[in-house]
Design a protein around this nucleic acid. Structure first.
Lengths: 220, 220, 220, 220
DNA sequence: GATGAATGAGCCTTCATTCAT
DNA sequence: GATGAATGAAGGCTCATTCAT
């Protein structure tokens, strides 16, 4: 409970490479942000979760601020890598690509509590710290453009009429919205229900290709 | 300069009533949270914005935690009062009631930066502090039930088939999502575009009653 | 021993005025610098010597750096006030004024260990911190000019030929030198011997007016 | 490229001898003290200036304190070697020996900024650390006795009447005083002017042998 | 020898809280 | 009511020191 990052009970191995140590500390930071919130994320707590001394955190990251920035970059890069990989594995049809993007956002790596909570914490500080916008703005824009392209392709390929910009935005905020609700509701629904909600939205936009349960079989 | 007949309304009030002081301090808290973020909201800053000493803040609220709780209650009550008033002024038809609820969330009082940012900050801390859920959960549930009832009435009155729970959720998270995007995008869209997005969603759910520009005229 | 600033054993009185408190803390700082050296002058130690909490030090001075600056200013102003007062009380003859200036530097207020050690500590940091030069340079220059004027008057009034700039400098560094030696010698000589040394120097410069024991009596 | 006969003197030495490394590190320490002051002299900075890792500093000196002590010893020994060498090269006459001692203190090796600043820094800490007195006291006393002997010889050989102890002290503190002023004045004078000041003092003590420009020619 | 990861004591600073006035 | 002096816990950060490689 006190050490979710699987630190050995004895001394942590010195054999960890520089990068592995950094990742270990970033993971500890994510779990701290997720469970303690931004305002109670302290270096001491991060170090405690990693089973290391707080001095080491600063040895590797110099500053708390830099640690938070690198953690955000890590989160952002992981998110991007996840949907890009999904897109690469998807077939060429726009409905396949759209399905891949939606599914990617519910993959275990990206949709686990430590990630979703951390995103939410960063969003909550985004207005007061230039940090979020300057470090994720570009990635976010790339994602949005990609989603818009897919939506535009749906129109071209299948004769839908819905404006691509708005369709993409609806899908995107539906996903974000379910993420948020899974955290802020007194009685939150589960991930399956969240996904159904998103697919419902996709089905409203592209009724011949999606329904509440996901992509419609080719037979349809 | 002074007005011997009625109390001088222009003079800055030296001694406000107990409740007025509290509201003044809560507003200062909201603006601090909105501009400085949760983690840098200090009593000194709140007092500075209110033009008072920090000692007075604790005189009125005893504890920083209690100040934050009361601020959240204030925010939550204001939000509820806003949509309830909108509902009261709306006509009896479900499409009128739905339109009123959507419009309420974009009213100037509720959708101003200090409010939206503050909500976002509280959401960002909701997982780590029992505060948010315990103080807003009930209000949120009431809102959700109300919206679901309206959606159910749409089905009953107009023969729509979309499940009320999901329709309500889609509308709700579309609104929340646009709120969030107005804060986290590098190049955010404006409020009008946000509303269009929500109406588009409503139009997909209830195509005979709503479109991207809002409720369709009775003629339709 | 632990508290040389005469703090009452119980709570320090709240009745101290703002300025009195500041002076109390500055005196504690001087004694800390004098006894612990610059590199081990900590806010905690200063507070301990004042019998107060370290938080209060920062409440009054905001920053350690500012405390050190204000302490230096205090030291510098005290020094200036001391020799100015001596000059004001002296007779009009240049030998009287010169005698007054020399005596001033050995007055108990200015020549006590806490002062001399502190000066030495600030000098030791003067090359690496702009602090000393920017805050004492002007006072030092004023003192030097004053001493030079007196030496020039010795020439004019009594027919001495020694260049005023150099004579003034010799007197000044003789004083400083004895100060330094009182601190750095293994077996330091006492203050009386120090003064004799300075008067010897003055006697070499102005043999008809000064000797090792000080100013020569008019009879001579 | 390599020279199989003798060790290659031009190649940057990858592995210095034990003593060379120590001297290299001590020089780095001196330059750090001179430029950063005592309180900001860190092992990391010393190592950086030496182009080595900080671990190596402790490998060679065990402790920061020991490094500072050895640096002081180095400084003190260098100083002693310098004036002893000057004395050895001087003629037998006391005025020649005195001249040699004065000149020695302004030789480039001993009077360079890194040395003078370092002395000043050590002096500034001398009251609070037993270090200075215990390590330089003996050397200082030897120097003082030597200077006193020379002054006594001036009396014996040339019929001067000035007490040797005091004359020696005046010369010594005049030198120290100009050193200090070269560091603490806003508009410091140069080394030539400093020397002129010292010679002026010597000329006042021994007018038939010294003047502001140094030793008087044998003709006198 | 040499490097640099790792530790932990101690520092400056922030800030919620108390309390005399 | 209101102010601001005073306290002390806790946080970020520096840095001497240890030690595995």
């Amino acid at each position: 409970m006190t050490n979710p990052v699987s630190a050995p009970p004895t001394r942590p191995p010195r054999t960890l490479s520089r990068d592995e140590r950094r990742v270990q500390l970033i993971e500890a930071t994510l779990s701290t942000i997720a469970e303690c919130g931004f305002s109670r994320t302290t270096l001491t707590e991060v170090a405690r979760r990693a089973g290391l001394s707080h001095g080491l955190v600063l040895f590797h990251f110099e500053t708390k601020e830099k640690l938070l920035v690198e953690t955000l970059d890590y989160l952002s890069d992981e998110y991007k890598a996840n949907w890009k990989a999904a897109l690469d594995s998807a077939g060429p049809a726009p409905e396949e690509r759209l399905a891949a993007l939606v599914e990617a956002d519910f993959s275990p790596q990206v949709c686990q509590p430590s990630r979703v909570n951390a995103w939410s914490a960063y969003w909550g500080e985004s207005q007061s710290r230039p940090l979020y916008l300057s470090h994720c703005g570009a990635n976010d824009e790339l994602y949005i453009r990609t989603l818009e392209d897919v939506c535009a392709a749906m129109n071209t390929a299948h004769g839908y009429k819905i404006e691509a910009t708005r369709a993409a935005r609806l899908i995107r905020i539906t996903i974000e919205g379910t993420w948020l609700e899974m955290m802020t509701l007194l009685n939150p629904y589960d991930q399956h229900e969240a996904k159904t909600t998103v697919w419902t939205c996709a089905g409203l936009l592209y009724p011949r290709h999606f329904g509440p349960d996901g992509p419609l079989r080719p037979a349809a």
